[in-house]
């Protein structure tokens, strides 16, 4: 009997060891963040593990999805997009999960797309995860108010223009909770290593890079005493930043809920 327990224990340990250290990332995906011309753009909301194109979680109906458009010195204008969302099924390399999509007609300037998702119950961790997510799309090169907080409960506010990064530049941002910087916030970073295929609602099988060891799948940095973080961008493509558990005492339905803030940026090669 003791032997059996021992064997079972061994199995459990080895199984848990084989689960790679990857993180949940709320994606707002669109192919380009710096568009030459206005027009219709596709947006996909997927809660997944982007580096590995791994397990995709079922998203509930988002609490909020909107865009704040600003151009030049004009006052930013908020447009609700929640009713435009259509349910889709997103296929990862290991499963498929409920996700959302919409289409948006963009004109000039900055468009800050903001998602407040329904908290996701993570059975593996026994807590909820709520990742308020931003992505900023610019049309035509005329800047707007990309540097201003939108006012999400948890938010990463960029200090570097998020759509003008060359590969090798740094990206800086401030992690905020209720409009105040979060000193020492922990930030996880993942590279979108598998191209999202818009027509198939799936990740491409081919990976762009291979991690030499699990630590590289999910990079970790901390914000400084002012809530500011800095990241050197080593490769062109989309990079996701998730500041985790910004309000440790927060609960949802009497359970712990990790309040996270996510931002996606895209770097391009100089050539």
């Amino acid at each position: 009997m003791k032997k059996i327990i021992f064997v079972l224990l061994g199995l459990v340990v080895s199984l848990s060891l084989t689960i790679p250290a990857f993180a949940h990332f709320q994606m707002i995906y669109t192919p380009e963040c710096a568009l030459e011309k206005g027009g219709k753009i596709d947006l996909k909301l997927v809660f997944t593990h982007p580096f590995e194109a791994g397990h995709t979680m079922d998203m509930g109906k988002p609490e909020q999805f909107f865009v704040v458009r600003s151009r030049g010195e004009n006052e930013p204008k908020k447009t609700d997009l929640l009713q435009t969302l259509k349910p889709i099924t997103w296929t990862s390399l290991t499963n498929s999960g409920k996700a959302w999509e919409t289409e948006y007609s963009a004109r000039g300037g900055d468009h800050i797309f903001c998602l407040i998702p329904e908290p996701y119950w993570e059975p593996a961790d026994s807590f909820y995860i709520k990742q308020n997510t931003k992505v900023i799309v610019n049309v035509g090169g005329e800047p707007g108010k990309w540097m201003e907080p939108v006012g999400l409960p948890t938010e990463i506010v960029p200090l570097s223009k998020p759509y003008d990064r060359w590969t090798g530049n740094v990206f800086q941002g401030v992690v905020m909770l209720n409009g105040k910087p979060v000193p020492g916030a922990e930030i996880e970073i993942e590279y979108m290593n598998h191209k999202p295929l818009l027509d198939k609602n799936a990740f491409a099988k081919e990976a762009a890079v291979e991690a030499p060891q699990d630590a590289f799948v999910l990079q970790t940095i901390f914000a400084d005493a002012n809530g500011v973080f800095t990241f050197g961008i080593p490769r062109a493509g989309w990079w996701g930043f998730a500041a985790l558990d910004l309000d440790p005492d927060y609960t949802y339905k009497d359970k712990k809920c990790s309040r996270d803030a996510v931002i996606w940026i895209k770097a391009v090669d100089m050539k």
């Binding site: 000039g108 005329e142 800047p143």
Partner: peptide, 20 residues
């Protein structure tokens, strides 16, 4: 940049690269 509003009008949006 100019856009066809689809209602018989066009709208042009002007600006400068520094946001002024």
């Amino acid at each position: 940049s100019c856009y066809d509003n689809g209602d018989g009008t066009i709208t042009c949006e002007g600006g400068f690269s520094d946001g002024s």
